[in-house]
Each structure stands twice: as structure tokens, then as C-alpha cells.
Amino acid sequence: MDERRLLSLRLRLALAGISLVGAMLLFTAWRLSPDPRGYGTHEQLGLAPCAFYAWTGWKCPSCGMTTAWAHAMHGDLPAALHANAGGTLLCGLVVLATVWAAASAGMGTWFVIRPSPRWLLGIGSAGLMITILDWVRRLAAG
């Protein structure tokens, strides 16, 4: 193995922490029951209803994200996409990132790819764009 590719103990621990946080988020989503309204699942965690919706009567861009995660973790991708496409994409990215971070931490070298700021910015920008476009779709649908 090329010594220059070995990850420091500090970075390996950070990656292990990232994978643990991702696993906890995914486990929490798996334990939730998707709200039949298509939003509001986060209220099962003791969180308040969406203030934007309460004030305007319109769903905010993140309305339905927790519901999308719950549907996705139960294997119902069509319902997840209907609830919030951006949330569904984010859930999928967290699944991939959790596995990637755990594998990289365990192997002590980057698993498959080495992350770059350009890739991360591109993925984040695409996710934001999908979330906004999906929000416009949901607003138009009523």
C-alpha cells in the first residue's frame, strides 16, 4: 500500500464519527412512522410543527424531509420522492456517506474515492437545486 495514502488516526476517528452519526440518523428515520399527510413526521421526535406552514399555509422547502427519510428507510421510494425529493436524495447520500466513511476509517485509506471540495460543493448544489425545484412542484400542486 502506498504510504502517502494512509489516513491519520485523527482523520480515521473523524470518519468513524461521521459514520456513527449517519447510522444514528438512518436508524432514527427507520424507527419513525411516516406521517400520512406527507409532512410532520418530525413531530414524533418532539419537534414543533413547521412555523412557515403555520404562518403562511404553504409547505416550506424542507416540509416532508423527515417523512421522505422514513419512507425511504422503509423501502417505499415512490412515497419518499412524493413527500420530498430533496430529502430522499439526502437520505440516499447519507446512506452512501455512512458506508464510505466507515469503510475508509476501517481500511485506513480512502475507500474508492478521495473527497474533494469541488465534488462536495457539486453534490451539495445539486441537492439544493433538487430541493428547490421539488418545492416549486409541491407548491404548484397545492
Rank of each mutant, 00 (worst) to 15 (best):
Trp30Val: 00
Leu32Cys: 12
Leu32Ser: 08
Ser33Leu: 10
Ser33His: 14
Ser33Arg: 14
Pro36Phe: 06
Arg37Leu: 14
Gly38Cys: 08
Gly40Leu: 03
Thr41Ile: 12
His42Phe: 01
His42Pro: 03
Glu43Tyr: 00
Gln44Val: 07
Leu45Thr: 07
Leu47Arg: 11
Leu47Ile: 03
Pro49Lys: 01
Pro49Gly: 02
Pro49Cys: 01
Cys50Phe: 04
Cys50Lys: 03
Cys50Gln: 02
Cys50Asn: 03
Ala54Thr: 10
Ala54Arg: 15
Ala54Gly: 10
Ala54His: 08
Ala54Ser: 14
Thr56Pro: 07
Gly57Lys: 04
Gly57Thr: 10
Gly57Ser: 06
Gly57Pro: 12
Trp58Ser: 00
Lys59Ile: 08
Cys60Gly: 10
Cys60Met: 06
Pro61Leu: 02
Ser62Asn: 09
Cys63Arg: 06
Gly64Ile: 05
Gly64Met: 03
Met65Arg: 00
Thr66Glu: 06
Thr67His: 09
Ala68Gln: 07
Ala68Pro: 12
Trp69Lys: 00
Ala70Glu: 09
Met73Trp: 10
Met73Thr: 11
His74Ser: 12
His74Lys: 13
Gly75Ile: 08
Gly75Asn: 07
Gly75Phe: 08
Asp76Ile: 02
Asp76Thr: 04
Pro78Lys: 03
Pro78Leu: 03
Ala79Phe: 04
Ala80Ile: 12
Ala80Gln: 10
